[in-house]
Design a protein around this nucleic acid. Structure first.
Lengths: 159, 159
DNA sequence: TATTTTGGTTGCTATTCAAAACCAAAATAA
DNA sequence: TTATTTTGGTTTTGAATAGCAACCAAAATA
């Protein structure tokens, strides 16, 4: 991996894990149902040593679990932990951005539907803390939150 | 930049732009109000040559604009285009994930509030196509959409 | 028993990152 | 007006990473 960010910023820390071109593709495949080494490999085209490295990192960081399958063997299944499943909004928002801006001509490529109801997911919605949806364009300002590091508080002191 | 993905996947294409550890931090700073080279530099700690490279790439890709300021000078202001502003949900979902999983002990660091009403943003919401919110856990399946490339359609044929 | 598949590891080379030095134009200070 | 600092870079250099290909052992399959 590349240099680790040390900022007191959740985005920095998220990027420490997923800030490269392969990790999120591996997670994407996990959402698509992949569990085995070669499934990840063939669907992404990632080199074996890189995949090996990323899977180990994801397991170490608690994003994925590795289970032994095959009685006492060297055969494994990789699955998402809750920490991994919680990355879905990141993938979803990237997919929406990519469909809109990187497939402007071809049109949207991929969506998600609820297996039970068959209903399709639409764009994610911004919401206020009270749960009400953001409907009109808003002018946003970053603010430090309660547990924020002094550095963060200093930077985002309310004016 | 690293190798470009060639898949017919919006996530892959998004990662071709923002799939590294610095680009999204630069975009983050733009959301925080940075416009000048040195503002990006001091707030992120990025090396000058890398910042130079990333800004040029973002401008070339239409994510940011570069305006000449200072009469006939070498002084520039970088601002987000609509394509760049549309990356907000990506940053927002990363920030939420990071606050939850990478600042579990310290607690959430940073939030956003509406400059006018002062209301804070909360977690982003998943919604169905018809606009109704996803309230309970759903089991999702990827599906090809209308304009999808044959390769995508083949992979995500409905069962 | 022989062959193939799985899940890697080990080199090797090319590219990218990242720090530091350098630089010219513009702005500011003396 | 001249000197100094700031801005916005480019260049150079070594270190780290990516990515390809070869190799390999255990397990599954033929």
């Amino acid at each position: 991996m590349t240099k680790q960010h040390k900022h007191y910023c959740p985005i920095s820390r998220a990027l420490n894990l997923v800030g490269d071109s392969w990790t999120l593709l591996v997670v994407r495949e996990a959402f698509y149902g992949a569990t085995r080494f070669n499934e990840f490999r063939t669907h992404t085209g990632i080199a074996k040593n890189i995949l090996s490295d990323r899977l180990a990192m994801l397991v170490e960081q608690g994003v994925m679990d590795r289970q032994d399958i095959g009685d006492k063997g060297t055969r494994y299944a990789y699955t998402l932990t809750q920490k991994g499943k919680d990355l879905f909004p990141v993938l979803m928002s990237m997919a929406q951005w990519g469909d809109k801006w990187a497939f402007a001509e071809e049109g949207p490529q991929v969506g998600f539907e609820d297996k039970d109801s068959g209903k399709r997911l639409g764009p994610m919605k911004l919401a206020f803390e009270d749960g009400s949806l953001v409907t009109r364009p808003v002018n946003l300002r970053p603010v430090a939150r309660k547990g924020a590091h002094p550095v963060v508080k200093a930077r985002f002191a309310n004016k």
